[in-house]
Amino acid sequence: MSIDACADLVARGDPDRFRAVMAAPVEVRAQLFPLYAFNLEVARAPWVTQEPLIAEMRLQWWRDVVQSAASGAARAHEVARPLHDLIRDFGLPVEVLDRLIAARRWDIYREPHADAAGLAAYLDDTGAGLMWLAARALGAPEGAEHAVRAYGWATAAALYLRAVPALEARGRQPMPEGLTTHELARLGLERLAVARQARRLVPKDVAPALLAGWQTEPLLRQALAGGSAPLELSPFRQRWRLLRQAFTGRW
């Protein structure tokens, strides 16, 4: 039930966010690793079983964890207990955590999102919600929410676009009717521009929470340019972008 256990989970299951946390100051890692481990556990819950009912039960278990943590009844689990501490110590908004979990119900089933608005809401509740939670854990004021969520949405769109081939290989329909990957990339870049326009509202101390978006812009631009190659940055470009954002704090 230690931070080390959460770090190990993230290292094995979410290497991009692990690298982002390791590029952040040591003193904030205890806030970020439990949150990213929680997100990983929730994100993979629909994929570890072929039985929808079991997947629903796994997600409900995490919704119960969040609610019990909010009431002070922590659970003895390697991720649930540190998450409880975050909720208690930093006042993480329980409703944002709950929406993040509930949104993952879409991953259980094979139906596409109802429309573009449905996908937008999914990205807002998952990726944008996660980035706002990370920012809150580092002390972000309420006034920073719009900028952080816009950046989180753009990041979620980029990662979703990168996952499209894998989702299709699993028999899912990631793109709703009437929305192309090109259009989603354009919307992501628009949200990125909105985030940058409001960047002054985000304190510098919160910048490590936004390191998870270090690949956002180039992935979106790759998707906008089209082509059949998987969305991916070269190892050199990955290291360069992460280090640049870590050292400058600019996103």
Rank of each mutant, 00 (worst) to 15 (best):
C6N: 05
C6V: 08
D8G: 08
D14P: 01
D14G: 05
D16H: 01
R17M: 03
F18E: 13
R19Q: 12
A20R: 08
E27Q: 12
Q31G: 06
L35C: 00
A37P: 07
F38P: 01
E41I: 01
E56D: 14
M57H: 07
Q60T: 12
W61S: 15
W61D: 09
R63P: 01
V66L: 15
Q67E: 15
A70L: 10
S71A: 15
G72A: 09
A73N: 14
R75G: 12
A76K: 14
V79I: 10
V79P: 01
A80C: 06
L83M: 06
L83E: 03
I87A: 05
I87N: 03
D89P: 02
F90T: 10
G91K: 02
G91F: 14
V94D: 04
I101C: 00
I108S: 10
E111S: 10
E111H: 08
P112Y: 10
P112N: 03
H113W: 13
A114T: 09
A114W: 05
G118H: 11
A121S: 14
L123D: 06
D125N: 08
D125P: 05
A134D: 06
A135L: 07
L138A: 01
G139V: 03
A144S: 10
A150I: 00
A150T: 00
G152S: 09
A157E: 14
V164H: 03
A166F: 01
A166Q: 11
E168S: 04
M175C: 01
P176L: 09
E177Q: 11
E177I: 03
A185P: 09
R186M: 08
G188E: 11
G188W: 01
L189K: 00
L189Q: 07
L189C: 04
E190Y: 06
R191A: 15
A195F: 05
R199K: 11
L201D: 15
P203N: 11
P203H: 12
V206C: 10
V206G: 09
L211R: 12
L211F: 08
G213E: 07
E217H: 02
A225D: 15
S228W: 00
Q238A: 13
Q238P: 00
Q238M: 12
R241I: 06
R241G: 02
Q245S: 09
A246S: 08
T248I: 11
T248D: 10
T248M: 11
G249A: 05
